[in-house]
Design a binder for these strands. Structure first.
Length: 496
RNA sequence: GUCCCAUUGGUCUAUUGGUAGGACGUCAGGCUUUCAACCUGAAGAGAGGGGAUCAAUACCCCUAUGGGACACCA
């Protein structure tokens, strides 16, 4: 049997370090067993998936050296590798389940579902909705069908409670309860499969033998197990890896930390160091070396050496590792190449020059004018904001609200950013010029700079957010719960 | 609220029953025109309570704490 593992990212938003983390372990596991590593794109969420995001997943995984044997861009014998192109396959298997009585059409409306859930919650105990309570009378089904109401395909699950053992390569047998397993939607009303169906069908058809995935999936393992049973397929070995954490121990999230691989790239971390660091998260070399290459990790990989406590992503240690890579592994020639590739390349210059040209008297003006674009965190102090014509409360609001609005953006594009900020300025009733001043300082370090919107585009979303967050910390410190609540309230009241 | 997973210094980890070790960070000293690098040293950990064992950080139970999951998102 050939070992086959996969990474199955969903192309929504920026490529996540968590994706690279899971990819790394799957890659190493596959290589250790002379197996294959597959990339599959899980773009079943039509509303959120984008091709740009898909492309940036390829680019950033490749940048880190985490290459795959089969994938949408590479082909392979088990394609297509993009789930949106496998619709018919899922429809067929969903129908098979319906035919066998393992799944059913459900015409429940969102409102009805809310009510059922509320009732369940009220009663205490398990909240999972079971087939019996979702099923409508035959007459009602016929009526809704007649009326052309949308429906979904749900799986049948055991009605009662009872143990459902799930085997995990690291945790042994985990005992879950059928009571918490709901009649999961398999096919959405748009005809697309949910993760659960697509995942099981694809893993089977693509002959995946081992699934190394995040801990967050443990609770849905019973559904997957049931599906394999319904289909009469052998289930791959499961291995749930610990989740990367924010410094407050919560799951790594972009609201609290930069999570985009692009950010770490922009910060000037070397791909070797980033991979190296991720390899040290929850894993160690047999001799405990701190610094190792991807090849060395693959050569020494043993999944049993994974430790299960959720590791906190510590940028300081990452920076230290990166410094090792910079001074121990690069000749001056290579370092020069890296710098050029990283920031000082023609494309980047051409992107900034339109902004810089009219503001330059001499060529030497260029460096100070654009230094903030090639910087990490800016050396701000509370006094940096002194010239801003806003009181403390306003300043706090401008920075925090702008950050929140920008976090909510799905795309990162100049006009949209501008509209967002202008709208917010209006809602806060602050003149645009005064409103933008603190943003200038947070992003560029000074108000004497070119358009802050253009700067943000050049810096990218994660770096821009990180700078705003940094500015907030510098100026107002960590916000207490009380203050946060107050801000939250004021924010919620905006634009109403 | 319910279920699941986890728990070694501030952080990443080693030790899969036999004196708790390494790394980052911190602090002190050295080297250096300065800074960094480098060298030396220091402080700092088994969440708590029960068990079985000659012996537990490691095995079992309880408690606590942290996290995750409970969607027509993955």
């Amino acid at each position: 049997m050939t070992v086959r593992t996969r990474i199955a990212p969903s192309p929504t938003g920026d490529p996540h370090v968590g994706t690279a983390y899971i990819a790394l372990f799957n890659l190493c596991f596959a290589r250790q067993h002379n197996g294959q590593f597959i990339l599959r794109i899980e773009d079943t969420d039509q509303a959120r998936s984008t091709t740009e995001s898909e492309q940036s997943i390829y680019d950033s995984l490749r940048w880190m050296g985490l290459d795959w044997d089969e994938g949408p861009d590479k082909g392979g014998d088990f394609g297509p590798y993009r789930q949106s192109e496998r619709r018919d396959i899922y429809a067929k298997y969903a129908q098979e389940l319906v035919d066998k009585g393992h799944a059913f059409h459900c015409y429940r409306t969102p409102e009805e579902l809310d009510e059922l859930r509320a009732a369940r919650r009220e009663a205490g105990g398990f909240t999972a909705l079971k087939p019996s309570e979702l099923k409508l009378s035959d007459a009602e089904v016929a009526k809704r069908k007649e009326a052309g109401m949308p429906f979904v395909v749900r799986m049948n699950v055991p009605e009662g409670e009872g143990p459902c053992p799930v085997d995990d390569m690291l945790r042994g047998t985990i005992e879950l309860d059928w009571g918490q397993v709901d009649a999961q939607i398999l096919l959405k009303s748009d005809g697309m499969p949910t993760y659960h169906l697509a995942n099981v069908v694809d893993d089977h058809l693509m002959e995946i033998t081992h699934v190394l995935r995040g801990e967050e999936w443990i609770n849905s393992a019973p559904k997957h197990k049931l599906l394999y049973e319904y289909f009469g397929w052998e289930m791959p070995q499961l291995c749930h890896l610990p989740l990367l954490r924010n410094p407050d121990k919560s799951k790594l999230s972009k609201r609290k930390n930069p999570t985009s691989i692009l950010y770490y790239q922009k910060m000037g971390y070397l791909p070797e160091a980033l991979v190296n660091y991720l390899g040290r998260m929850g894993w160690s070399m047999p001799d405990e070396s701190e610094k190792f290459t991807l090849q060395q990790m693959m050569d020494n990989f043993d999944v049993q050496r994974v430790s299960l406590g959720g590791p906190i992503f510590d940028v300081e240690k990452l920076s230290w590792l990166n410094s090792l890579w910079i001074r121990d592994d690069l000749s001056l020639d290579q370092l020069a190449d890296r710098l050029q590739e990283w920031m000082f390349n023609r494309d980047n210059l051409m992107a900034v020059l339109p902004q810089a040209q009219t503001r330059m008297n001499t060529l030497s003006d260029f460096a100070p004018l654009t230094a903030f674009l090639a910087s990490g965190q800016l050396p701000l102090t509370a006094a940096s904001f002194d010239e801003v014509k806003l009181d403390d409360d306003q300043l706090k609001q401008v920075l925090q609200f702008a950050l929140w609005r920008l976090e909510a953006l799905r795309t990162w594009e100049r006009d949209e950013i501008f509209t967002t900020l202008k709208t917010l300025a209006g809602e806060l009733d602050i003149k645009l010029k005064d409103f933008l001043a603190p943003l200038f300082i947070a992003i560029a370090g000074t108000t004497a700079s070119f358009s802050v919107m253009d700067s943000m585009v050049l810096l990218g979303p994660d770096m821009s957010r990180a700078r705003l967050r940094h500015a907030l910390n510098v100026r107002v410190g960590e916000l207490g719960k009380k203050q946060m609540k107050k801000l939250d309230k004021a924010y919620a009241a905006l634009g109403q």
